[in-house]
């Protein structure tokens, strides 16, 4: 199988604040991820993982450098174009799930399809199908709060995938889960990354899940310090 470049960040700079209070979040950062790959971004707090993830997701615009996702340059796109790009190409799994508690499970999963303009009936059908795939058949009409943490994260994964995006962005997907549930969720995410045209980028602090990564990009002070295939070669100080 050929793996093409899914995400490429070249010499990306981002800083917040000004003058003395200036914080450099990304400093000439280079990063790449391929299709069919699950790549993790790891590193100590404040190293720039979330900022890089936001740049890749098109929710943050770099001050300089280039960002290319599936051949589409994101730097220089207008907010409207970035919104359209995210709608079509990205799926999100958030740390705190971000499931809307007043909506049913199936309604939460329908959101990306409805944003894309699908009819209510079509969105519901697809959402129901994907909920079955993530093992939540029969829980469609319940409220998210009635589910366990692991089940809520499955709903979030279903929501991230229902519109079949090529890029899946996962922000600390296991931080709110226990060890076993976290492992189940990561198995599922790794399985998803095996799709030939899909790339999964995971930001995490959870060293227990490093083993699920195809590659691990270690960040420090706004830069990719190194990229490794084997988690045992990582700096043990933050593991």
């Amino acid at each position: 199988m050929t793996h093409t470049i899914a995400v490429a960040a070249r010499q990306v700079d981002i800083s917040f604040g000004s003058e003395e209070a200036k914080v450099i979040a990304l400093n000439h950062t280079d990063f790449s991820a391929h299709t069919g790959e699950l790549i993790m971004l790891v590193g100590p707090s404040g190293c720039g993982k979330t900022t890089l993830l936001s740049v890749i997701a098109g929710t943050l615009t770099p001050q300089s450098g280039e960002i290319e996702v599936f051949g589409q340059r994101l730097d220089g796109l207008s907010q409207e174009e970035l919104t359209t790009f995210r709608r079509k190409n990205l799926g999100f799994v958030f740390q705190s799930f971000n499931l809307i508690p007043t909506l049913s499970v199936v309604e939460n999963v329908m959101i990306p399809l409805l944003i894309q303009g699908a009819s209510h009936a079509v969105a519901k059908k697809k959402a129901t199908e994907i909920l079955e795939k993530v093992g939540l058949k029969g829980r469609e009409e319940g409220k998210p709060n009635a589910l366990s943490g692991g089940q809520q994260q499955r709903v979030a994964i279903a929501r991230a995938l229902v519109h079949e995006p090529p890029l899946l962005i996962c922000d600390e997907p296991t931080s709110a889960l226990d060890k076993d549930t976290g492992a189940q969720i990561m198995e599922m995410i790794r399985e998803l990354s095996r799709a030939p045209n899909r790339c999964v980028v995971v930001v995490t602090h959870d060293f227990r899940i490093f083993k699920y990564a195809d590659r691990i990009a270690e960040m420090e002070d706004g830069k990719i310090k190194r990229v490794v295939d084997d988690p045992r070669t990582l700096d043990p100080t933050y593991l």
Partner: peptide
Amino acid sequence: ENLKYFAAIKAMGASMRV
């Protein structure tokens, strides 16, 4: 109270019009 959900919907690609 729903701001973080609106932000999530926005991140998923919902326009300000929606």
